[in-house]
């Protein structure tokens, strides 16, 4: 017991001290070490891109995520499923530190990205969020033109400059911008639909097109991981199918983590699935086929077959 505590404290850098009441055991009763040992037995096809260790999140007094440890393999689709309020979105937002933006949220534990701890002082949040991008539940393009939506990120990072001064000095990046916009829109399978109206306002697109634009916007800054928070829940079945095809294509190049309420969707598109159940626990994490055909836990089976939640 004391041994494992030591190991953990060494591994983990706490960004916010919360006292030493950190639960050593996961709520399912096994120690974190045991749980991790179990999960690492699962044979990942590639290296782990992101590793969360014993992650706890509190919103004020509410303990929203309880001791979650989980490895996300590279260039694959990982689905997070579970009932509402089970902490899956909270977990997702920990992976690029978007929870920092909620002042009541407190994160405790460790997340490593490419082996580097992201919950440590001095981490470059700009760089982290460039490399770990995010797509939100409801499409949220900026009230700008389609072109400006895509070039917004690179422009703000100084990668592209088409401003007046740059034009006067002959350092105009219009060509680079054009290529970038075309590449991002093609990757998001939106190019054919909008290539002749790039200067139109993005708010004039349909919901499904807006969501693919948001994916293209996310791709514009060359991320390595794409976090998607129920990206298709506000869309009709046809738009959903397009987004699913897109995710399938993206997984060849990117690491995709997707939160979804729709179990069929998880089964269709993901390589491995994590099931969160009420109370913020990660109950089971395995290959998708295994989860849906032969889950270890009775609670997961009940949830998947619709007996609960």
């Amino acid at each position: 017991m004391s041994d494992s505590q030591q190991t953990q404290t060494q591994n983990r850098t706490r960004t916010e001290t919360t006292g030493n009441d950190q639960p050593l055991e996961t709520t399912s009763g096994e120690t974190v070490e045991e749980a991790r040992a179990e999960w690492t037995e699962y044979d990942f096809r590639g290296n782990a891109k992101m590793v969360a260790e014993d992650l706890d999140v509190y919103y004020g007094d509410d303990h929203a995520l309880k001791g979650v440890s989980m490895e996300i393999p590279e260039e694959s689709v990982t689905a997070l499923i579970g009932p509402s309020g089970c902490g899956k979105s909270t977990y997702l937002r920990c992976l690029n530190r978007m929870n920092d933006r909620i002042s009541a949220a407190r994160v405790d534990g460790s997340v490593q990205f490419d082996g580097k701890e992201i919950y440590q002082d001095g981490i470059n949040l700009v760089e982290l969020r460039k490399r770990v991008g995010m797509v939100f539940q409801s499409p949220n393009p900026f009230p700008k033109s389609i072109r400006d939506n895509i070039s917004y990120g690179p422009r703000k990072h100084g990668d592209i400059d088409t401003g007046l001064l740059a034009r006067l000095l002959g350092r105009d990046d219009s060509d680079a911008e054009r290529k970038l916009v075309e590449r991002a829109l093609k990757q998001a399978a939106l190019w054919d639909e909008v290539h002749d109206r790039l200067d139109d306002n993005a708010l004039g697109l349909s919901g499904g097109q807006q969501q693919r634009l948001c994916i293209a916007r996310c791709l514009s800054v060359d991320p390595e991981v794409i976090l998607m928070d129920e990206p298709a829940s506000a869309l009709d079945p046809i738009a959903t199918a397009k987004i699913e095809d897109l995710i399938d294509d993206l997984s060849e190049e990117y690491t995709v983590v997707i939160v979804t309420h729709n179990m069929q969707q998880a089964a269709r598109i993901s390589d491995q699935t994590a099931v969160f159940l009420t109370g913020g626990e990660l109950v089971e994490y395995d290959e998708t086929d295994k989860i849906f055909e032969n889950p270890e836990s009775q609670r997961v089976e009940d949830y998947i077959t619709g007996k609960f939640g």
Binding site: R129, N140, P141, H157
Partner: peptide
């Protein structure tokens, strides 16, 4: 101004001041 704009901008790694200047103030 919807918080979604601020979230979207932050998720691209854009700093707070740049978000205010380029997204919040125009809106």
């Amino acid at each position: 101004v919807p918080d979604e704009y601020r979230d979207a901008s932050a998720a691209l790694g854009v700093s707070k001041w740049q978000t205010i200047r380029s997204v919040v103030l125009p809106a």
